[in-house]
């Protein structure tokens, strides 16, 4: 239990938290803005990683590879969107269907269950190795922070446009949105695409960071994304009202999640149990608003009138 082991591990945890933050922002867009629990992301994260690694192994520039990965994510979101709107399948089931099919797609992209990329032979944007002893502009924490800042800036702009406002209205009250002439089906598809595009971008960075893409890398990622959203809201919810700040809160939530995880690991907790911890933490946080309304609200006092009448 050497404190230095923990201190040394923290920058890595922060970097990982930042990369997952992009994924969590994607989850925020479906879960909070569109009010859809989209399970596609478990597959999309791996798709992003797989496409990025395969592109790079085939000689593409790192930026082109990341762009290709993001586009693959957009496509995955499009598929879920079509399942949900055009084919009328429940959102959660539509996501599960896409996720399942992505398993095969990911295997076909990679050709096998795992594809590694050598940081010394390829010019990666982020890596485990770029945490210490590199100039700051090559430092993964800095690079990913810049990426997040750009992502938040673009999303802030987008959700302030006519189209973006329409998407927010769709998630808030679809009846009202349609009555105001908003094509809610189209907007849901766009929202799902943006979300999955971000998740794939996160996957692309994650695969570079860890040096490989793996068929299992996305498993349970929706839970991590939700955890980041919920932690961010729980801690910064009262403080951050602005949309950009809310997205920033999600990013902080993700970093905090990984830092806490690192501490848990440092306590030598069996790492096989980590997923169950994550699930329980998310379940409890999701339950809190329900418990609050169910058990901790005072009955409203009726104004005047005789209740026995």
């Amino acid at each position: 239990m050497d404190i230095m082991t923990l201190v040394n591990a923290l920058p890595g945890a922060a970097a990982q938290g930042l990369i997952w933050a992009i994924m969590a922002i994607g989850v925020y867009i479906t879960y909070r803005v569109l009010d859809i629990a989209d399970l596609t992301v478990d597959g999309t994260l791996c798709t992003g990683g797989a496409v990025c690694i395969m592109c790079m192994l085939n000689g593409c520039n790192v930026w082109v590879s990341i762009l290709a990965a993001t586009c693959a994510g957009l496509l995955a979101g499009l598929v879920t969107g079509i399942f949900h709107t055009f084919m009328g399948i429940q959102a959660i089931l539509a996501g599960i269907l896409t996720q399942l099919s992505l398993w095969s797609v990911n295997l076909k992209i990679m050709g096998k269950a795992n594809q590694a990329i050598n940081v010394d032979k390829y010019d990666l944007l982020v890596s485990l190795r770029f945490i210490k002893d590199v100039p700051f502009y090559r430092n993964t924490i800095f690079v990913v922070a810049v990426v997040i800042a750009v992502v938040i800036a673009i999303l802030y702009w987008f959700f302030g446009t006519e189209l973006g406002c329409g998407i927010r209205a769709t998630g808030c009250n679809a009846n009202m949105a349609r009555a105001q002439g908003i094509n809610t089906s189209l907007n849901k598809v766009i929202g799902l695409m943006i979300s999955n595009g971000l998740v794939a971008l996160s996957g692309a960075l994650l695969a570079q960071y860890q040096g490989f893409a793996d068929i299992n890398m996305g498993r349970g990622s929706i839970v991590i994304g939700l955890a980041a959203v919920i932690i961010g809201e729980a801690i910064f919810g009262k403080l951050f009202r602005n949309f950009a700040l809310k997205l920033l809160a999600v990013a902080f939530g993700s970093i905090i999640y990984y830092l806490v995880l690192q501490v848990v690991i440092w306590f030598k907790v069996d790492t096989d149990l980590l997923k169950v911890f994550s699930a329980v933490v998310v379940a409890i946080f999701l339950a809190i608003p329900y418990w609050k309304s169910r058990y901790f609200t005072k009955p409203t006092v009726r104004k005047g009138g005789n209740t026995n009448a």
Partner: peptide
């Protein structure tokens, strides 16, 4: 509850309605 978007401002709701029947573009929402 049905006619307005509860999580959006009064001004934002009106801006949504102002654009009824027009294509929603990437111009500023309000």
């Amino acid at each position: 509850m049905m006619g307005t978007a509860a999580t959006m401002g009064i001004d934002e709701n009106l801006a949504l309605a102002r654009r009824r029947g027009q294509p929603r573009t990437l111009r500023q929402g309000i």
